[in-house]
Design a protein around this nucleic acid. Sequence first.
RNA 1: GGUUCGGUAGCUCAGUUGGAUAGAGCAACAGCCUUCUAAGCUGUGGGUCGUGGGUUCGAAUCCCGCCCGAAUCACCA
Length: 592
Amino acid sequence: MSPEQLIIEKVKGAIHALYGADVPQSSIQTQATRREFDGDITAVMFPFLKISRKSPEQTGEEIGAYILEYSKEIESYNVIKGFLNLKFSGQYWLKVFEKISTTQTWGEHKQSGRTVMVEFSSPNTNKPLHLGHIRNNLLGSSVSRLLEANGHRVIKVNLVNDRGIHICKSMLAWKKSKLGETPANTGIKGDHLVGKYYVEFNNILKQEIEELKKSGVEESEAEKNAPVLKEAQEMLVKWESGDKETVELWRTMNSWVYDGFDITYKRLGISFDKTYYESDTYLLGKQLVSEGLKRAVFFKKEDGSVWCDLSQEGLDEKLLLRADGTSVYITQDLGTAQQRFEEFRFDKHVYVVGNEQNYHFQVLKLLLKRLGYSWYDTIYHLSYGMVELPEGKMKSREGTVVDADDLMDAMINTAKETSLELGKLENMSQNEQEQLFNMLALGALKYFIIKVDPKKKMLFDPKESIDFNGNTGPFIQYTHARIRSILRKASEQSIEKSITGANLNEKEIEIIKRLNIFPDKIKEAGDELSPALIANYAYELAKEFNQYYHEISILRESDKELIAQRLMLIDVISGILTRAAAILGIELPERM
RNA sequence: GGUUCGGUAGCUCAGUUGGAUAGAGCAACAGCCUUCUAAGCUGUGGGUCGUGGGUUCGAAUCCCGCCCGAAUCACCA
């Protein structure tokens, strides 16, 4: 039972004994006592005044006195205004500490028997991954681990958008260049090479539009009628009709991209249980639409296109099939969702997709509901805000993006410079050093991105991201390295760690309280699908340790029992930090 | 215009089911390395929590109006 739950029981009992009334558990409000007051848990007295018919102070006094008399866990109490502050005994916290330290899986929850599918990443194959994708990937993978820690069976899936006009654009520009460039003959990473030709296409397009405008064509017309765009559209038709040459080129260029993506995913520490390709799924859903049409859930317009009227829900009409009978994005998503449900019978399906698609998912759920699927509400759109740069938004067409690979390289460089400056690596081999730089750089990047509430748009300031001081990933890594260093020294001197029953100081109790709420944090973060809560938790814990570190000398104490107990405490801290970091995907070094 | 989401210190962000004097980091300033790692610690300054009402013993938090910003409302994906 948590301290808060315990206090709720006690207060309930006290009110029953003192005033002969039963109050619902929900009316008993507790919170951690604020630092400036003496106590651990605070109960709010205001809701009970009608029952006690006394002042807030007097009510608090009476309840406090009663609890003190009948509870061995409570050491003292005080009342300030309507707040009853209760203080647990050191013995109580020692027991809590013992429980945490003997529970190997502290923070992990029992198997829930629920299956959760998480779709994330979902890249286009016409360009390399950029900062926005990094946020998506980091969110998706940390949310997956968070759900696993909550005992769910998690299936991570990726839906690769490998077909459509965008990839034709890259293909066309590549073909036109007649250079025959490949990753092998240029040494360029596959996704970057294809991305290069996507930018090239847009350059050609821009040029053609300019020329058309010079010859007197309106801008909007020029944008629609540029020859190169027509060519790309023709290419898409060729692809859809299975034209051998086009399909061959498409396969080749996509394979370059996949090789490139694999490298980036690996660096980011990301994997999937199943990968779907849109070229396989884009026709799915037509069946659903025609059934909906039969049952008059949808309707057909004169030109033959199929729509759903969502005006009742405050939305517009939504297109489901084009006049020529081909399917659109949402048709595909309807089919995919249904297929996945048949296959996995998930209890929840999380889509990690940017907030520019809020409307899309609103519609998707509504359509599934209209079609009569009872599981429509298990679909959850984890919508995250855009990543912006100090100069404004990123635009991949104009090449003003922060490339994922470049960014990681830059951060590894900074990690190297910073580490060498601080000069702590004398005893490390070249190989170990490289590993450390990599760990620090990715730790910094991951923490920087994950610590922000997913809903909010975030600003990525390169200057700030490479700062390894303060509320950062490297701070947590540093804290861990410090702890491991102490434990190494203790082990060299054969000092045992154990819980001896020595008195705990205030800071230690504070730390134990924080360790104690770790399982609740995991639960809360899992319910809200917000790894940011775990990031902040880890930071607070690390900060508390650093303060503790400066207050006392763990190994220089004369009392052997005290040393043993303190070693045990920091060992537990290191374990929890490691577990929290694992959820965030951050590796912690043994030394740095 | 409709829908959705944001607005907290100069900047980047936290803020538990509504609770006490709203917190971190960065930046600025002042201290702390003969001691287990100074990527650290301590202190100072910095706030009409967008705004106006309402509910309540009590509001950054809940409700309503307004202001500002973002995304979206395609026979693109």
